[in-house]
Design a protein around this nucleic acid. Structure first.
Lengths: 418, 418
DNA sequence: TGGATTAGTTTGGTTATTGGACGAACACAG
DNA sequence: CTGTGTTCGTCCAATAACCAAACTAATCCA
């Protein structure tokens, strides 16, 4: 059964939008390809495809490339491909201990990527918004982006976000509540005389799973779960190719599922939460206790501690390996709850879990297999290939995704030179 | 982010379909209403609404009723309402110990409802298919349905179902595996010389949540979970108004989430599963041990035992109340896992949990509140008002829902007499 | 050089929505 | 009881988009 029927009247422009998206996606998948091939693949007629391709070319999203090398009988088709020189999309991520920016082109190739240690917790939300705005301004001014149309920017935040309004409802690890991040960034940009652009704010796990869906090893798998391994543990859930948002935004909040009665105390006040057992900070406190301060970590501390834990685990340190194994098992138990409810094709471990995955992954996979009902499926637990840029890339990808759905907020322009 | 873009070309008939659905749903919600009111409510123009209403009237789904009593200045509109005399949809449910049929009209009013004790487990799948076919044939031949167009029939099964093919992949409590139920029913109907009709097979919890979405107290709430309380425990999950199906159909399989290490042995071979702690059969073994046989229950045994447990609980029997309280707490823990992942607006307890709800519901709600992260929401745990007919009604509703989406597999007919 | 084949464009036709004009039906005021 | 104003529903021409088929273009091959 499909979703709730769309409200509002349907009209011809909706049809056009759908078909623009279909053709764009087909070219993305099959480039270089001819109009005739697109017609065959989509079921549209050749005339419709010609009309749509003309439209896309006028917006510089598609261009003609040389005829395909393959030589067959009959008139050769002219190859079409996405024009990756025309647009850009920016994704940012703010997290407890770092700030990331990524800009991608229409092919979702990375144009530019910056990662910097940053103590968002002590900076506070207002200073953070300023820092983000500065980074965004700097990014769009980069020579690599200057000649492109910027589709917009998206900001990933580790916490509960009301995506439509761009308000960060509650981000415990940043200690933000009810902060109107989008509004702030838009205000700061206007004050600095920068051109307005679409701004989106969303949860980091939600954007992480979008990144995996569009660019990870499992790209295109419509039922995916992405688990962030930052200070907090959260899950982004994609079902049927769409984000699960729930009735109030609390989907995938597995960081605080109770796993062990009377277990270690968690930041949320309860005991035995997944985050207190398998969150990166908790893992490191067991694995490399000598490197962890008594108070909260700040700046690049977490990253350094992860590196140290990896080095020791590689060297065969039994205490570190034991700590990672136990954390992996708890993580698997938490993930199993999710697998039993959602039945995803795969669970992808992201963030700081990626470098730790050689030791954390196998026990996690074993625990998922042991505690889930569905028959065991090899490769159900995977490691992200996107590292700490996943959320930022996902934000940028989400902007590109709007084009793939036929929503082209782009003016017609003179056709691109060959 | 909306779901995966629909594949295939979009065309004018898709627009018509969407708008037919929009108008039909508007009339359902606002009847009796005039064409002008529909135009205002939907954003379509008056001419389009006229055209669509004519189409719906030709298919006898809508009829003109007397002008509305409300008197205002200007020409009065002619009232439109759904014509409930024209079609019918049939829903059946086969479960371990009973068989249910329900037929509804376009307003989803119940035309006919039968519930019979039936030992599906010992009858076996083939005999069951014969029995279902017989019941269906008897139902469509009923004088109440004879004059109507039957949209189709849907069968709810407690187990894993591949809905597109109508094959029951695995129904442990019925002991069916890989049984092609739809194909069998279609074959038996053809052999009996009955007219073919669309047949659907789906999981009972999935259809239960559809019934709640369309006809329960929480009708229209797009993020709902329905928990069946039959011999097994399963959840049907609706998110954004659409069923969650997962990558291989194992969504909502909460019956076997492990809750208590070393707990009671479960039918699945493991220990401490939710079903072994809070499944109806397990509950009754604790609550009314004297009424439960050592072997498996058969026929109407379960229903009688539930009645007895209710009677004793009402009389204040402390052992029964204690057993129900404990089961409710376990159920709440299992439901909390679901709430933390899905964030539904409500969790609805169905099946045999309904009569037991006065004692089982409050501890269940308390456990959900205690173990879920999102702020407590009163009324998060609800009791179904549909009793044991939920799944059958949901199947029938799903057929009506196709009309509400504009898919009208109905021939044009002479307009209905006033 | 001409036939076969495939690509892309052009032209005409279909479906469905839109928007404005118009007649119909009623209330109200004089 | 008659005119005026208001709202309802329909009719008709215009528009947008897709489709089907004819047509031109480009290439291979005999």
């Amino acid at each position: 059964m499909p979703g709730t029927p769309t409200i509002g009247p349907a009209g011809a422009q909706g049809v056009r939008e759908a078909n623009l998206g279909t053709v764009l996606r087909t070219i993305r998948a099959a480039a270089p390809c001819s109009r005739a091939e697109i017609a065959a693949a989509t079921g549209l007629t050749k005339s419709t495809v010609s009309s749509i391709v003309a439209d896309l070319a006028a917006r510089r999203l598609v261009r003609e490339v040389g005829a395909p090398a393959e030589r067959r009988v009959g008139r050769p088709g002219v190859g079409l491909a996405l024009d990756e020189r025309s647009i850009a999309a920016v994704g940012l991520e703010v997290n407890v201990d770092y700030l990331t920016v990524v800009a991608v082109d229409l092919l979702e190739g990375v144009l530019l990527s910056r990662h910097a240690a940053f103590d968002a917790r002590s900076a506070g939300p207002e200073a953070c918004a300023e820092r983000i705005t500065g980074l965004l301004a700097h990014t769009v001014a980069d020579p690599l982006l200057r000649s492109r149309t910027v589709l917009g920017a998206s900001v990933a935040v580790p916490g509960l976000v009301d995506a439509p309004s761009g308000v960060v409802t509650n981000a415990p690890n940043l200690r933000w509540t009810g902060f109107p991040l989008r509004e702030r960034i838009a205000g700061l940009m206007a004050r600095a005389g920068l051109p307005a652009m679409p701004l989106h704010v969303d949860n980091d796990a939600n954007l992480g799973v979008i990144a995996e869906y569009r660019g990870g090893h499992l790209a295109g798998t419509p039922d995916l779960v992405y688990i962030t391994g930052e200070v907090g543990v959260g899950a982004g859930i994609l079902t049927g190719g769409a984000l699960l948002r729930g009735s109030s935004g609390y989907t995938g909040e597995i960081g605080h599922v109770p796993l062990l009665r009377g277990g270690p105390r968690c930041g949320c006040g309860r005991r035995g939460c997944l985050e207190a057992l398998a969150g990166v900070e908790a893992v490191l406190r067991h694995a490399v206790p000598d490197l962890m301060p008594d108070g909260p970590l700040s700046g690049a501390g977490l990253s350094r501690a992860v590196d140290a834990a990896v080095a020791r685990a590689e060297a065969g340190d039994p205490a570190v390996r034991r700590a990672l194994r136990r954390a992996g098992t708890w993580l698997g138990r938490g993930a199993a709850a999710l697998v039993n409810v959602i039945d995803p094709a795969a669970v992808i471990l992201g963030g700081y879990f990626v470098p730790l995955a050689p030791w954390l992954g196998p026990p996690c996979a074993a625990a998922v297999a042991a505690h889930s009902l569905a028959p065991d499926r090899p490769g159900r637990v995977q490691t992200s290939g996107l590292g700490l840029t996943a959320a930022a890339r996902g934000g940028a990808s989400a902007l590109v995704d709007a084009l793939d759905r036929g929503r082209l907020p782009l003016p017609e322009r003179a056709p691109a030179p060959p």
